[in-house]
Design a protein around this nucleic acid. Structure first.
Length: 569
DNA sequence: GCCGTTTTCGGCCCGACTGTTTTCAGTCG
């Protein structure tokens, strides 16, 4: 998919236009970019199939943006962007320096000819910035710090890996005696895959004491901002945390505002205006009269909407659905009955079968599948046919030992270069659940890697495709697989696609899940555990499924054991 | 440049904090 690539160009156009003081167009380009990012289908495919017309049907994309997309797909260039770059020849990275917005970038370019982060750093170190009117020594100092931050921390955090830190921080604020209530908001509350910073909302009668307490916490590396109602700090681990303190009577409105997403809020505020209301973090108002504020649900209801779950507040159709009372009833962690993907010491796991079983029992799982790697993945000491048959025997014994849970035999086999499994079908047939994954040839072209996976789905023994796109967040891109074709084939062959819960994988992505849900493709949520502690990753997979609008009925492992097995291919 | 429970033209979310000023512009979320 080239969606992110093209979205980035429109974000850049928006920024460059803003530097030129162009009104409103930046907003339009950013909306177009967001819309493209949210597509579940490759934009190049949409264009291939339906031409300009189909591009214009995408929300926030009109004839002009559609033409630019066409131009870029055909020529690899956008004249408009090239022109803008000539007019404002600054490096894109300048836009990512905190405290620098379009106005200051323009000023710095006009006054000092600053085009790059390096130029900026030199000018600041030489003390040239403080002499510019409306800037000053303080700004200069902040710019130097922001450059340092940009160089060392220009990354996002994988939510699943810092969730525990977040929980701990919230606990400490709760125990401070200055708070009545503390809530995580922002992208962490919406359960995005990664977060850029952490937003916390607190209700307090003594906001200045709370903010003092907050800014003096042990792991605060630096206080970036401190006011009466909000404060921003940088933690030792590099995470930026915003704390906003409000009175109880605004609580619901503040939650709504602070959870976002920004785009969701903008749409909601527009809806409010259309109904002659005004919406802010202090409430929903008609004139000066408060219509709703203490309760988040009241705000939505007062606007004629059903309450919208946090995970789908991305302005991607949820407001329309809430207006029509047609929101999905999203799958929940408590719906999950089994886990279909876990490894043991036999291959690259780090715990024994018994340890994994006991941990799964503690989490209330009713059934689990051991899916150790198979022989083609030599590095993991993958099992061959003989070892798999032995494992089946071992699992039979385990089922006698543990009565609270059913242990199923399985494997995560390798889909070979030709699309065949690396294990004999006669053996696969004896396993309860077979996951097929691509572990090699990540760089193969789209046609080849798509064909491989489709062929694997045609194998009657392969029930589930593991981590279908192979991406690893912040490590590697997904392979060039054509998910449209994969989903068609999944539907046709009744193969399930995995939502891998591993924080760094979360594969499928939310937009793909939504597409699978629309097509009624079967899904499973699995942990891919390599350690007992990983079994708890299930919650991240469920969050991901929720972000993809999945309901209980879409997820096979919400079914009781007998129905689960019956519904596999 | 997009879009329509206000609309095919005229709008386009709203408020806190910072650093510079001394009433505000810029940035951020």
């Amino acid at each position: 998919m080239r969606n992110e690539e093209i979205a980035r160009l429109f974000y850049l156009i928006a920024d460059l236009l803003e530097i030129q003081n162009v009104q409103f167009k930046p907003i339009a380009y950013r909306r177009a970019a967001q819309s493209i990012e949210g597509l579940s289908e490759g934009i190049e495919l949409i264009y291939e199939k339906g031409g300009l017309k189909s591009l214009e049907e995408i929300p926030a994309i009109g004839v002009n943006v559609a033409l630019k997309i066409e131009e870029y797909l055909k020529t690899g260039k956008m004249k408009h962007l090239e022109e803008l770059k000539k007019q404002v020849p600054i490096d894109e990275s300048l836009l990512h320096i905190g405290g620098l917005g379009p106005k200051r970038i323009k000023l710095l370019y006009n006054e000092l000819g600053i085009k790059t982060v390096d130029d900026l750093e030199k000018a600041a170190k030489a003390g040239k910035i403080k002499n510019i009117r409306t800037l000053g020594a303080g700004v200069e100092e902040n710019i130097l710090e922001a450059i340092q931050f940009f160089k060392s921390h220009s990354r996002r955090f994988i939510l699943g890996y810092i969730q525990k830190d977040i929980d701990l921080l919230v606990e400490r604020l709760k125990k401070s005696n200055f708070t009545e209530r503390v809530e995580v908001c922002g992208s962490a509350r919406r359960k995005k895959e990664t977060i850029g910073d952490l937003d916390i909302l607190a209700i307090s009668k003594n906001s200045s004491k709370l903010i003092d307490f907050f800014t003096k916490l042990n792991d605060v590396q630096k206080v970036l901002g401190k006011g009466l109602k909000k404060s921003t700090v940088l933690l030792q681990n590099g995470l930026q945390v915003d704390l906003r303190v409000l009175d109880k009577k605004y609580f619901g409105a503040a939650m709504q505002y602070f959870i976002g997403s920004k785009e969701h809020n903008v749409s909601l505020r527009k809806l409010a205006i259309s109904k002659k209301y005004k919406l802010s973090e202090y409430g929903l108002f008609k004139g000066k009269k408060v219509i709703a504020g203490e309760n988040e649900k009241d705000i939505y209801n007062s606007l004629g909407l059903d309450f919208i779950p946090y995970e789908i507040r991305e302005n991607s159709g949820e407001i329309e659905a809430a207006l029509k009372h047609k929101l999905p009833k999203l799958v929940e962690l408590k719906d999950i009955q089994g886990d279909c993907h876990m490894h043991t010491l036999q291959t690259d796991g780090t715990c024994t079968m018994e340890q994994m079983i006991e941990a799964a029992i503690k989490l209330g799982r009713k059934y689990i599948v051991f899916t150790d790697h198979t022989k083609a993945l030599g590095i993991t000491n993958g099992l061959d046919e003989k070892a798999l048959l032995q494992q089946i025997k071992k699992i039979e014994k385990m089922n006698k030992k543990y009565s609270e849970i059913t242990i199923l035999s399985g494997a995560e086999l390798n889909i070979l270069d030709d699309g065949n499994p690396d294990i004999d079908n006669k053996v696969l047939k004896q396993l309860d659940v077979v996951v097929g994954s691509v572990h090699t040839g990540f760089k193969q072209d789209k046609e080849k890697i798509t064909r491989r996976t489709m062929k694997a789905m045609e194998n009657e023994n392969i029930d589930i495709i593991g981590h279908p796109t192979g991406r690893k967040i912040q490590v590697r891109e997904p392979f060039a697989i054509d998910l449209n074709k994969v989903m068609e084939k999944a539907k046709e062959t009744e193969t399930a696609l995995e939502i891998n819960s591993y924080p760094q994988r979360l594969d499928l992505k939310d937009v793909h899940i939504r597409e699978a849900v629309n097509r009624n493709v079967k899904l499973v949520i699995s942990t891919d555990s390599h350690h007992t502690s990983h079994l708890e990753f299930m919650k991240f997979g469920v969050d991901q499924a929720r972000r993809g609008w999945a309901e209980k009925k879409n997820i096979l492992n919400t079914l009781p054991l007998d129905k689960f097995l019956k519904n596999l291919k």
